[in-house]
Design a protein around this nucleic acid. Sequence first.
DNA 1: CCGGATGTTCACCT
DNA 2: GAGGTGAACATCCG
Length: 259
Amino acid sequence: MPEMLEVEIYRRAAATKLGRRIVGIDAPDAWYLKGGIDAGSVITVLVGETVIDDRRRGKLLLLDTTGPTIGLRFGMTGVLDVDGADAIDALEYASHRRDPAWERFVLHFEDGGALRMRDPRRLGGVELNPDEQRLGPDAAEVTLRQLTALLADSNAPLKARLMDQARLAGLGNLLTDETLWRAGFDPARAAGSLSHDEVVTLRRVMRHTLRVLGARGGSHLGDLQDSRSRQGNCPADGSPLLRRTIGGRTTYSCPLHQR
DNA sequence: CCGGATGTTCACCT
DNA sequence: GAGGTGAACATCCG
């Protein structure tokens, strides 16, 4: 998936199905159904139900129905197609080919429309009544108290903590690098080493980054993005960027101004 | 040909 | 217990 900004776009697109009744389901890929449920059961419990709310927590899209809640995870390459059109047409790493084999899950509605998940790499999945408690507070909503607590007393790299969805939901690799670059914090610093003032700064910059990139239209539209390459230089001060693996993900940061 | 890529989960290390 | 690593998923791109 996309990160939380893209899932938010998906949520708004899916909201057009509020009040619509589900009349059919295609679930051809058993592997895509998470939580130990099979296609037959999904059809049994969802057909005939009506979508009554759309929500998002981090990167998880939630569609409440008069029956179960449908949880959609997009992985890196999942695309939501609403009534035949991609909800996002500029998604990186998501091919625009439409191989029918990549259609992993479809909700058909009584108006003839459909919500389709297309996911070439099968990194996403569908779950009924997902355990939302396994996710931390959404990054756009996190309070200073919550952020302070989730960073405190940890020797894990700051970036790894911020990307830990159980502690803070929504930030992925690009948004985390962009936020830390803007805030001027070294992603490898121990999470627990931030002072109170630094946590305040981090929260402010994180929220600002989410607003700005959200308005631009995606997680890949940050100021750091074009420099995320082996020979990249810091857009702020021109220093050659560091390229490291932190939290299991390729990380770019500026050794001069991120401390 | 090879390495990585907006992600998550799991087994296996230290 | 805390973190880290590599594999798996399967396709595209440089």
